[in-house]
């Protein structure tokens, strides 16, 4: 976790479905997205998060997973006990263009002379009653929709074809997908039949003051710097569709803020953490740098 304070000296591992957030992720609600999400979760309606990269979609899901509780069943000495409520596990899958249905559901693996079935992340989430977050879902192959559809309507069923099984999702399970309408080509739009199974929460970069607050909190830079970074981001975002595919994300602002907090000069920090990651086009780079140099004095 980015917010972890104590030094991490050894790696830790979780089973996919057991990953829980131990500390509250920092998230500043911009509108009523928290309430909307909660209502959707209560009603088992899957959620579609729309918005540009780095505006806080993933953080929002983490925040919600932390805050949504469900009764935790623990099997102890053969008896099932309901223990204290616990926050939801979060299974995150970054989708890519070769991601297939069996990557999500599971597959047989060879082990010695046998084959062993391994559950995929989606199956695990369904079984564990976790939030399954499919990031950038349009990137995945179309056959994944076969899985998404029965899971997202009233049935909440995951067909495990290879094992000839149907899995009913446990309470708590919620499918959340994200989608960035900005940069995908027309080919990679979500199909209507898929879209219309979700409630959608639209994200955009937060307003200047909120963004400054976020940047300040996350990066530890001064309020002044944070406000200037937010102002700059606003200006850079004006260039969207004009040489820039996407505006500077809040994430990049935070990086810049951290660099500045570490003593890198603001102009340089913006160059390495905003200008260069954003674009390779020399001219666009220069125009952004001019914006940067107009806002920061050194």
């Amino acid at each position: 976790m980015t917010t972890a304070t104590e030094p991490i000296t050894e790696y830790r591992s979780w089973a996919v479905e057991e990953f829980r957030l131990e500390e509250e992720p920092y998230y500043v609600p911009v509108a009523d997205e928290v309430e909307v999400f909660e209502a959707a979760w209560n009603n088992k309606i899957p959620v579609l998060l729309k918005g540009p990269t780095g505006c806080g979609k993933t953080r929002f899901v983490e925040y919600m997973a932390y805050h949504l509780n469900r009764p935790l069943a623990v099997v102890r000495d053969g008896k099932t006990e309901i223990e204290a409520e616990s926050n939801l596990p979060l299974v995150t899958v970054a989708c890519h263009e070769d991601l297939t249905a069996s990557d999500l559901v599971g597959r047989y693996l060879l082990e010695g002379n046998e084959t062993v079935w391994i559950d995929g992340p989606l199956t695990r989430a369904v079984k564990a009653g976790a939030i399954c977050y499919l990031d950038e879902v349009v990137e995945a192959r179309k056959d994944t929709t076969v899985l998404i559809h029965p899971l997202t309507d009233h049935r909440r069923i995951l067909p495990v074809e290879k094992k000839s099984q149907l899995l009913q999702a446990r309470d708590g399970f919620l499918l959340v997908i994200s989608f960035n309408p900005g940069y995908q080509s027309a080919l990679k739009d979500l199909k209507q039949s898929t879209r219309q199974r979700f409630v959608a929460v639209e994200f955009d970069y937060p307003p200047r003051e909120t963004e400054a607050e976020i940047v300040q909190h996350e990066s530890g830079c001064s309020a002044d710097v944070a406000l200037n970074l937010a102002k700059m981001a606003e200006k850079i975002r004006n260039l969207r569709e004009h040489g820039l595919a996407e505006g500077a994300s809040t994430r990049l602002l935070i990086y810049a803020g951290r660099m500045i907090a570490q003593g890198v000069s603001p102009r340089r920090a913006c160059q390495v953490s905003i200008v260069w990651p954003l674009t390779d086009d020399g001219e666009v780079q220069r125009s952004i740098e001019e914006v940067v140099s107009s806002i920061f004095e050194d």
């Binding site: 200006k235 850079i236 004006n238 260039l239 004009h242 040489g243 001219e283 666009v284 220069r286 125009s287 952004i288 001019e290 914006v291 107009s294």
Partner: peptide, 15 residues
């Protein structure tokens, strides 16, 4: 000019 155009576009937010 292209550089300045983008700069102004960034500042003003209009084309």
């Amino acid at each position: 000019s292209e550089l300045i155009r983008m700069y102004c576009k960034a500042l003003t937010g209009v084309d």
